[in-house]
Computed example of a mutant assay.
Amino acid sequence: MENTPVVEVHDLIKTYPGAGVRALDGVSVAVARGSFCAVMGPSGSGKSTLLHCAAGLDRADSGRVRLAGEDIERLKEPRLTEARRRRVGFVFQAYNLLDSLSVWHNVLLPQRLAGVRADKGWAREVIRRVGLAGREDERPARLSGGQRQRVALARALAGRPEVIFADEPTGALDLATGREVLGLLREAVDRMGTAIVMVTHDPAAAAWADRAVFLADGRVVDELTGPTAEGIAARMTAVSAR
């Protein structure tokens, strides 16, 4: 069902050795299927740590993480890697593409690493949807930053993930290109039913989401449904002043 949580974290605590500060201090958040959630907060608030723990890229010290109903914090490698590859897509600010591979092979790479048969028809369709039809044989180095981020998004969508985790996906892009990428993320939610969890510092980017969750000092301190850029900016000012 659409409102069933695809991502659930409960009472997450994470402390980095040597830092002496809790990056996450009892965080609980649920994200519904087919919804778009922005995660915001001041620098050092725990945004990226939350994303990494929720996606299974890092482990919390305690608490529960569920992806599509599966308790992933109890999984050992390689089952955790298998769960990520089966359920999750990633889009990062730095694109994380391999310049030695073509657009086509970058898009198919996660499925090949997972040892599953690639759905080449769907891969062609997502490449078309992100506006890169005809560029499949090009190397990422020959593409603009916005086009590289489109490749990263096509790669994330090619595996039909239940959720995409996006960490500052427009941070390296100009305003117009950033809007285009956000529109594609929004389309993934509205047309494909993919959930999006996006860390961002930009109120205009977060306004594309259905909901914004605000962190400060490793805790959830506020939330806004149906956010506007102005409303988010006002909440961020209040959160930063805490």
Rank of each mutant, 00 (worst) to 15 (best):
E125W: 05
K76M: 07
G159D: 01
V107I: 09
E168I: 01
G193A: 13
Q147P: 02
M236Q: 01
E70Q: 15
Q149A: 04
Y16L: 10
L57Q: 00
D99S: 12
R160V: 03
F36E: 04
V107L: 12
T237W: 14
R179K: 15
R87K: 14
R135W: 11
V163P: 08
V189Q: 03
Q111D: 13
L173P: 09
G18H: 07
I127R: 07
L97Q: 07
A206F: 03
T200I: 00
M192A: 14
D202I: 07
V189Y: 02
M1Y: 15
F214Y: 03
G34M: 04
D25A: 10
D137C: 13
A166T: 06
A233L: 14
A133N: 01
L109I: 07
R155A: 06
L215C: 02
G193H: 12
R79I: 09
G115P: 00
D167I: 03
E223G: 14
K47W: 08
V126S: 00
H10E: 15
A172V: 04
H10V: 11
A156L: 00
A209M: 01
H105M: 14
V220Y: 04
A207H: 01
T4L: 11
D71T: 05
H10C: 15
V103P: 14
V7M: 06
R33V: 13
V239Q: 02
A229W: 06
